[in-house]
Amino acid sequence: MIEAKGVALRYPDQTLALKNIDLEIQPGELIFITGPSGSGKTSLLKLFLGMEYPTSGYLEVMGQLMNPTQAKAIRKLRRRIGPVFQEFKLFPGRTVFENVLLGHRFLHMPKTDLKENSMNALEKVGLAHKAFSLVENLSWGEHQRVAIARAVARKPLLILADEPTGNLDKENALKILNLLASFKDNKTSVIITTHATHLLDCEKYDKLIAIHHGVLQLERIG
């Protein structure tokens, strides 16, 4: 699913965010990426989503080479990825249902399937009863769940969740982690970045990757 060899990422301001990353992720794996703030977790997810390109090394996501010459194909690749952004990036002024629908209505799917997928995703995250509320009227945790519903409604093969436990108390953070983990199946991989290592249950994950100062320091099989 993901293959990285000697990947490095240097930002235009010359900050070296990732150094020499070697990594292999198989379909159906649940991966946690941990590390302190600024360690390079988000940068790694950005590479997987094609928001940044490796400055050196080789990176392939679902068979797609990730480099600037492939921008158009990477745009299409994103349709098979369900991203949950750290700051949610929901669409204000729209209802919860519209937000989830808008996340995949540009895919070539029948209208009824689009609506059904959206409602099913909202049921999975426990927000079906708020489907027609404006997103502005939701709590922080509910925003988080709408973002997850939007990511999973398109039935992606790869779910990328960036710090989904940030700003949540322990109980809610656990709920969100368990919810995200529940979307893993034999085809779908889930990659979650978090600095809340104390919440992780080693029986649930397939791999734990620790990053420090842009260097992959630890890869542990769950």
Partner: peptide
Amino acid sequence: REQINTLRLLGASEVF
């Protein structure tokens, strides 16, 4: 702009 970029990250085409 932010919404436009979010749609881009979700894979929507420029025309859409």
